[in-house]
Amino acid sequence: MAKGLPKSFKKSLWAYHINSGSCNGCDIEIIAALCPRYDVERFGIKLVGSPRHADVLLITGPVTRQMVDKVKRVYEQIPDPKAVICVGNCGNTGDVFYESYNLVGPIDNIIPVDVYVIGCPPRPEAIINAVAKAWVKLETLEAK
């Protein structure tokens, strides 16, 4: 469990997932984290269908040129306080695509990122850990 995580939470955490041109590897691991084996829904973590309902933005992929403004728009639509989790190497560094001409990423060039999850793709456990870390950030923000 992430350091500083309280024993109980004030509210459930809702996440919105956006794919900015990833290979699907990370995306299916995110869904795997929601499914019975890892089952994050038991903590109240849930994927929602609209950024306006979300507390956390899960973003995968290296951000292709066509997706930049969409990523920004989704980020802006999420109400404050919000946390951004970048899932997977290709959003963090560009990964194997780093030299491509069509990438604008890494993601932290475009929007501020709070938690970086490495791995190509990261295991569902790592994604859950990242969400717990984002939780800490949100709880501290709220306490202020």
Partner: peptide, 23 residues
């Protein structure tokens, strides 16, 4: 989702491309 994979591949050797192809 255009990541210019083929273009990138033309700058790498086949062993490196395997990992690109995987992604």
């Amino acid at each position: 989702v255009h990541r210019a994979i083929e273009w990138t591949g033309m700058r790498r050797n086949p062993i490196q491309i395997l990992y690109l192809a995987e992604r």
